[in-house]
Amino acid sequence: MKKISLALAFLLIAVCTAFAQDNTVEMATALRSSGKIWVVVGVILTIVIGMYIYLFTIDKRVKKLEDR
């Protein structure tokens, strides 16, 4: 009796974990854990900050023209 119930419990747990695995959503955890996501962030940050610096220089140029 004990053996059967143990086996049943085992089965239940196995089924549960199988279902749980089905429910997980695939996320890019590998990219994050290896730290390579920072490369992507760095690249995009460079572009964004570069764009803003560029905007600032345009702004300055316009200001110079206005002051003339």
């Binding site: 997980t24 959503v25 695939e26 996320m27 890019a28 994050r32 996501i37 920072w38 992507v40 962030v41 995009i44 940050l45 964004v48 900050i49 803003y52 905007l55 600032f56 702004d59």
Partner: peptide, 28 residues
């Protein structure tokens, strides 16, 4: 203008690194 640059940069960093809810279909 500086605030705009800072906010957008911050949202880039936090947007890539920060945790997001795990959703089907949408994923990352």
């Amino acid at each position: 203008k500086i605030l705009a640059a800072c906010l957008v940069s911050a949202s880039v960093v936090a947007g890539f690194i920060g945790p997001v809810p795990e959703l089907h279909i949408l994923n990352e």
